[in-house]
Design a protein around this nucleic acid. Structure first.
Lengths: 148, 148
DNA sequence: TGAAATCGTGGGAATAAGTGGGAATAACTG
DNA sequence: CAGTTATTCCCACTTATTCCCACGATTTCA
């Protein structure tokens, strides 16, 4: 279970160091095999799945009937973009160049632990999201009963 | 099972190098016989099937009663356009010129691993698709239950 | 407070992959 | 049947990727 946000620097070659706090967790969860895809719902954000978790997601998404345009878009962004990466000797993973540019992730980025997966945001996109509070009109029925 | 996106350059002769990561997979899945057709649902996109997979698709499509116009259109784009290709010594396949122009695929293209088949997009068309996030109003009933 | 260890970052070299061009062969047309 | 055009195969070069090493900063423990 991943949680917390970490400031990350991506170097010119597109390498990104996994924070030490997560190293053991990742090694245990998926033998160091991570899968990078697009976040289909947000631009400027990539998803990082442990391989075991990814397989579940992939199978769910592939099972959707591809006659619907939305489903094809989802399959394209998730399965079509999925890149498997393994950390190097220094615990760094290599972001595929295409995804780095498409998500607009440059030197400064933010890694978020989101339960079963990570989210990688460009610093700007992340800051913009955080600054933006949740308005009352957005509250869903599921949220209404929360005790926070 | 193919997945991931790769930037591909198509040279003046219409040759396209299969990424090394897929070479063995393709050789195993279909003895290097690939079938190229149009993606009937998206313009600017071609489909590449391993031969074994193609036979299933072809038989399904051919079985549709051809009195309906939609069926004929599908049969035309899939069966009617199917070209079998095999990689050369350098692991490159030759795109038929007609399909290259029809799909608008020029020098810069993107190859997507989509489970049982590949998709070949022109760089522009692909980028446009990726940049476009999935909005809340587009979510289908099938998608609502996904746990991503 | 100092020293050691660990973590993060950058750069460089070896290797592999991708790309382009050219020549030989085959096919097609007049 | 000959000339021209298209296709295929092969070789070589350039570019990208991967692995490894080293330096600097920060933290931790004695």
């Amino acid at each position: 279970m991943f949680q917390g946000e970490t400031a990350i620097t991506v170097d010119d070659k597109g390498r990104l160091a996994i924070p030490t706090a997560y190293r053991e967790l990742v090694a245990g969860a998926c033998a160091n095999r991570l899968v990078i895809t697009y976040n289909p719902f947000e631009s400027g954000c990539l998803w990082l799945f442990p391989h075991a978790e990814w397989e579940k997601v992939r199978d769910q998404v592939n099972a959707l009937p591809s006659v619907k345009a939305v489903h094809r878009a989802l399959q394209m962004k998730l399965v079509g973009a999925a890149a498997m990466v393994e950390p190097d000797g220094a615990g760094r993973i290599l972001l595929p160049g295409s995804q780095r540019t498409a998500a607009g992730i440059e030197k400064k980025a933010v890694l978020l632990g989101m339960g079963s997966k990570f989210e990688l945001w460009s610093e700007q996109a992340h800051l913009a999201k955080i600054r933006q509070t949740i308005g009352e009109d957005e509250i869903s029925d599921d949220m209404a009963d929360l005790r926070l």
